[in-house]
Amino acid sequence: MTLQARFPTLFEQPYSGEWLAEQDEHFTPNTVSAYGHALVDYFRFCAMQGINPPDANRADVLAYVRDLKTRSKSVAHASPAKRPQYARNTAHEGFANATIRLRIATVRLYYDYLTDEGIRVKNPVKKGQYTKFRTFGGGKRGLVARYEKPPWLPNETQWQALLNAASSEPIRNRFMLALAYDGGLRRGELCALEGGDMDPSGPLVRLRAATTKTQRAREVPYSQTTADLYKAYLKHRRRLNPTSDLLFLSESRRNKAQPLTFWTWSKVVQALGKRAGLPLLTTHTLRHLRLTDLARAGWTLPQIAAFAGHSSEDTTKLYIHFSAQELSERFRQTLGSLLDWRQETLKASLV
């Protein structure tokens, strides 16, 4: 489906369709889709407020931020076309911080385009800036503050509960779960795999640049357990559609042998979490857990960043999570060296 067919609202407005088409040349389909949905939401807000998007000022953008923070997802506050979706997702007032930041970043990029094209003189969206070597007061905050909430990770008991729940799943789901953890794969990367991306001789998974978030190809290993599951899955896979290049296919009656979407995979994992008593489990939990396990095993930050396909080690740091108990145990284990000596000098001098 073309961008114009997916986002007709944007192509009815001047400049926005051209902007989205330009993004399509530089970013992955998932990123472009996120940008498209974000800008459609902003245009919907502008229409309700009688604002012409290309002429919006800073006060208009601030009003949109307030709307995102307080908007009710009830039917009464949704546009007629979106009422069924809003009704199904009614859970709380306002959107998550990450969602708000994504939408405002999209709006900023849209106005950057208008400024570059000479349509506007100034971008109404304030961009946060960081000044090196200055911590307090050394930067300028953007319209939306960034809040990083530590993700939930399963402990050993919860991990076993997940595996127990997964043991009765079809071979496809068991293989996908193991491969997603082993490779620390994003859901989009996992569902876009083709048969030729698997290298049993490694064993390695080759992730093509076009399927990754950073558009950088990489190879990641997988375990013997996953290799055994892969071998069993191949026998099943050949019966579904032996001519398709994609590794994972839908097995539902409605979409038999069609490409498996990451939305479907998300639902599979969500259902697994529910059965295992782990309501916080998501597809991304497996990626966070894998990278944290690599750090626990002594991998260096550059090694983990390369494994994860991160363009910055700062991003990798957000994925590594040690519990207070783990940090205490690590502290006790290292007391036999320099820390031990330092503690002795502290005790001798200060106690």
Rank of each mutant, 00 (worst) to 15 (best):
A5N: 02
W19A: 04
L20P: 01
E25P: 11
P29T: 01
S33D: 08
Y42D: 08
G50P: 13
N57F: 08
V65T: 03
H77W: 13
A81N: 02
R88K: 12
E93Y: 10
N97L: 05
L102Y: 06
Y111C: 12
P124M: 08
K132W: 08
F133N: 14
G137V: 00
G138F: 13
V144W: 00
K149M: 10
T157G: 03
E189C: 08
L193Q: 02
E194A: 06
G196C: 03
D197F: 13
D199R: 12
L204V: 11
T212I: 06
Q215R: 10
S223I: 07
T225V: 05
T226W: 15
T226N: 14
Y230E: 10
H236K: 13
R238L: 11
L240D: 00
N241E: 01
R253M: 00
R254V: 09
L260E: 01
F262C: 08
W265Q: 03
S266I: 11
K267N: 13
L272M: 14
L272W: 07
T292E: 03
D293E: 10
L301Y: 06
G309Y: 02
S311E: 11
L318D: 09
I320A: 06
I320L: 05
F322E: 01
E326P: 05
L327E: 11
F331G: 05
L338S: 09
L339A: 12
A348S: 14
S349K: 12
